[in-house]
């Protein structure tokens, strides 16, 4: 119903406190869920939930950013902004899932990684980078769903998956519209314009081929929570089944190659040199470019 809503409206919808967060999805879609805690290094970060359970008859591991639904919960959950301890808890879950061959499902919903003093001291950047590295070569099927806010590197750190899905009213961008406006407009109140310019809606990202599917919200998820969650479950199932058959038909190495190419191919660039050298024969130029080292 909101397919023509401007980007800024989507941002508001994606941030609605009443919108279902990761645990709502887990409670409805994962049976026998057992939450697992801690990074085995320093602490247990409540802004990331992780655990094991059964999804439509197979054991899976699940990770999600967890926001609160009210102020107290949000303070407890640090507004869903993980520190390095949260990312290391996720990393432990990745490896745990890989060890036992369980598929991994990630729910993405964060304003961004925690920008605090202690997060810096314990290596926030390194923790995110190590997750990107681990996800790129994890030998299990992986599915990510942006259910609300996909905020920058803090979202990416659990979203480099074989299939990346997005709810219709979720957003995903390199920075919050407010931060982008403050930097490029020199005025945080230009956030609505920045939101538009950042092309952060599910529709935008589907057109850019950065995400694989949009999960429709005929009614916004904060008004029809169960429906949104069930539809999400069905979509995850369909993708997971596809990935599982790729693995059983062509092997896990083939899946890893597909995953590599998926991210390898994201980018919009032109090779001017090639255009200049080649004239009307770009193939020849490409060959030349590769042999002339």
């Amino acid at each position: 119903m909101t397919s023509t809503a401007p980007a800024w409206e989507r941002v508001q919808l994606a941030r609605k406190p009443e919108r279902p967060h990761s645990l709502a999805y887990i409670n409805m879609l994962i049976s026998g869920f057992v939450e697992l805690h801690g990074d085995r290094r320093f602490s247990d970060d409540p802004s990331i939930v992780s655990g094991i359970g059964s999804f439509n008859g197979r054991t899976v591991m699940v990770i999600g950013h967890q926001k609160g639904t009210n102020t107290k919960e949000n303070l407890d959950r640090n507004f869903g902004m993980p520190g390095p301890d949260g990312y290391r808890k996720a990393l432990r879950t990745f490896h745990h899932a890989e060890k036992f061959g369980f598929p991994l499902i990630c729910f993405i919903d964060t304003p961004g990684a925690d920008p605090g003093l202690s997060s810096e001291e314990r290596g926030q950047a390194t923790a995110i980078a190590e997750n990107l590295l681990a996800l790129s070569s994890l030998k299990i099927p992986t599915v990510g769903v942006v259910i609300g806010e996909g905020g920058s590197g803090g979202a990416l750190a659990i979203s480099v998956t074989d299939r990346l899905l997005m709810l219709e009213n979720a957003v995903y961008a390199v920075a919050s519209p407010e931060a982008c406006a403050a930097i490029l407009w020199k005025d945080a109140s230009a956030a609505p314009e920045a939101a538009e310019a950042l092309k952060l809606t599910a529709q935008n990202l589907y057109e850019f081929e950065i995400i694989d599917e949009i999960i429709p919200e005929p009614e916004p998820a904060h008004e029809a929570s169960d429906e949104a969650i069930l539809r999400t479950g069905k979509t995850i199932e369909r993708h997971l089944t596809e990935i599982e058959s790729i693995v059983s038909d062509q092997g896990i190495e083939h899946l890893l190659e597909l995953r590599y190419q998926k991210y390898r191919n994201i980018g919009a660039w032109v090779d001017q040199q090639e255009a200049v050298i080649s004239g009307d024969s770009p193939d020849l130029a490409r060959q030349n470019g590769q042999t002339a080292n």
Binding site: L132, L133, L135, G153, L156, A173, I210, Y263
Partner: peptide, 23 residues
């Protein structure tokens, strides 16, 4: 850090560069 003018394309370069290093 990121190139804001390329939004999610820029963000995804983090995944792309890191995956290459994995290889």
């Amino acid at each position: 850090g990121a190139r804001m003018h390329e939004s999610t394309f820029s963000l995804m370069q983090m995944a792309k560069t890191t995956a290459a290093l994995s290889r």
